[in-house]
Write a protein that binds this DNA or RNA. Structure first.
Length: 454
RNA sequence: GGCGCGUUGGCAGAGUGGUUAUGCAGCGGAUUGCAAAUCCGUGGACAUCGGUUCGAUUCCGGUACGCGCCUCCA
């Protein structure tokens, strides 16, 4: 079976054909770095990480580019609020983002172009658009893209300009020719960072950076363009418009969008202020659990976030890890299982089906299954640590969340062992109940009693 | 108002025109002083109403409910 990818523009799955044999150029819209990443950002990171991993497993050479938006109103506002230079803020947030990403076991992109470092490319692109009559400077000094110059405007979102105007939620700037025209270059405001240009000092609009940087790094046409669900409109629609208006050729061949993370049936988002940062999540759950939780759903479907859902995912993940071998396995992998895994992943990166294969392997006890489980778990990036390391880390994490100290638990466990030796089972069970109430499980084995935090 | 999406067993979540997804939880058994873990076994589902079909959860249409985008947001 060959790879099929759901293309937002085609509104369906299409067989994947790279522009050049064996090579893939892929661009994903990244973060605006003014705050910590939340679970929604994590989902996009993990989704595209798995996608890139699988493309590489298939043998493609992938050039994975993800931008960093480091000029933006929200960045300026936050920097002002914290009374630090905006570059200090962005430096801090980029470091935090990378830390979150490494924790989630995502490989960093091959390139992370920053808006502030590609101003000349953006200005070039704007100049080309003006030459072609697809952009103009308004009275305010802002330069706008002329939506009417691109007849296909709306094709990604299946919309037309008339409907959008009827929607009447488009903010109207006085000097726009059409309400849907969008800013390419904003004239400078006093006190804010700006760059010189032939249209006056200013800074780039949001959309232009992605067109300029993707074309700069991947060429005027490339294979895959991805991003979060809320980028479909207007961001990606505008990218298509300005890119294709400038070059006259198709911009990206496949458009991929991750689904939203929901909280109480609403999208997790900054504006609704219902987000959970990855950082906060990591204090309660191993990042591998978060990754597993995310991958349990298909990348395009909505995920409902709740502590309960996470707890359930954790139980499943722990069981999967528990079934791993303690020692490296040296055995042939199972061709049939790998075949099923590949079929699942080739069908638009169906990770839930792929994970089902892992559980089928976890059930088996033969060496081939063990070897295959390791192989496929790694392919999905689900096993960043050894079994022992994961279980130990998990205990350490839980230790911070329970009230009883290790020493106190040890004392109780020893007391219970003595009671058992004296066949005082009532006393033994009372201690067990006390520990259970505190979230501690104890297991009696031939070699002694061990306790773990649930 | 415009453009889309979803509705699967207690929960999470795939998939299929007629045959077990998978996981968590539950139940029964083995095991255990009792447990835990493990192993074995097991019940349970396709929102609703019509249509197409020999047969539909799976295709088509209507209805209900939920969600997303149309404004910054991954």
């Amino acid at each position: 079976m060959t790879l099929a990818i759901f293309d937002t523009l085609a509104r369906g799955k299409r067989p994947f054909l790279p522009r050049l044999p064996g090579k893939i150029g892929m661009y994903v819209c990244g973060m605006t770095v003014y705050d910590r990443c939340h679970l929604g950002h994590g989902r996009v990171m993990v989704a595209f990480d798995v996608i890139v991993r699988h493309l590489r497993t298939l043998g493609f050479g992938v050039q994975y580019v993800r931008n960093i938006t480091d000029v933006d109103d929200k960045i300026f506002a936050r920097a002002l609020e914290r009374e630090i230079p905006f570059t200090a803020l962005t430096t801090e947030m980029i470091a935090a983002m990378h830390a979150d990403e490494r924790a989630l076991n995502c490989r960093l992109p091959d390139a992370e172009p920053r808006a502030t470092q590609h101003i000349p490319q953006m200005l070039d692109l704007i100049a080309r658009l003006i030459e072609k009559g697809a952009a103009y400077q308004g009275e305010s000094g802002d330069v706008y893209f002329r939506v009417s110059a691109f007849p296909e405007y709306g094709k990604l979102n299946n919309r037309n300009l008339e409907d959008m105007v009827a929607g009447a939620r488009v903010q109207v700037a006085e000097d726009k020719e059409h309400p849907a025209d969008f800013v390419l270059w904003k004239s400078a405001k006093p006190g804010e960072a700006s760059w010189d240009s032939r249209w006056g000092a200013g800074r780039p609009g949001w959309h232009i950076e992605c067109s300029a940087m993707s074309m700069d790094l991947l060429g005027t046409q490339f294979d895959i363009h991805g991003g979060g669900p809320d980028l479909k409109f207007p961001h990606h629609e505008n990218e298509i418009a300005q890119s294709e208006a400038a070059t006259g050729c198709t911009f990206a061949n496949y458009w991929m969008h991750a689904g939203p993370v929901r909280v109480n049936d609403e999208k997790m988002s900054k504006s609704l202020d219902n987000f959970v940062t990855l950082q906060a999540l990591f204090t309660r759950h191993d990042p591998a659990v978060i990754r597993f939780f995310l991958l349990q759903s298909h990348y395009r479907s909505a995920i409902s976030f709740s502590e309960d859902a996470l707890t359930q995912a954790e139980a499943a993940y722990v069981r999967l890890v528990q079934s791993r071998s303690d020692v490296p396995v040296d055995a042939e992998t199972d061709v049939e299982a790998i075949g099923r895994y590949m079929d699942a992943m080739n069908d638009d990166f169906n990770t839930p089906r792929a994970i089902a294969v892992l559980f089928d392997l976890a059930k088996r006890t033969d060496a081939a299954a063990a070897a295959t489980l390791e192989f496929l778990g790694d392919a999905l990036g689900l096993f960043p640590k050894s079994k022992a390391a994961f279980l130990a880390d998990r205990q350490a994490l839980k230790a911070q969340l329970t009230g009883l100290s290790d020493a106190r638990i040890d004392t109780l466990v020893i007391e219970r062992s003595q009671a058992r030796a004296e066949r005082d089972f009532a006393r033994a069970d009372a201690i067990r109940a006390e520990l259970t109430a505190a979230g501690i499980s104890i297991e009696d084995s031939p070699t002694g009693t061990v306790w773990t935090r649930d």
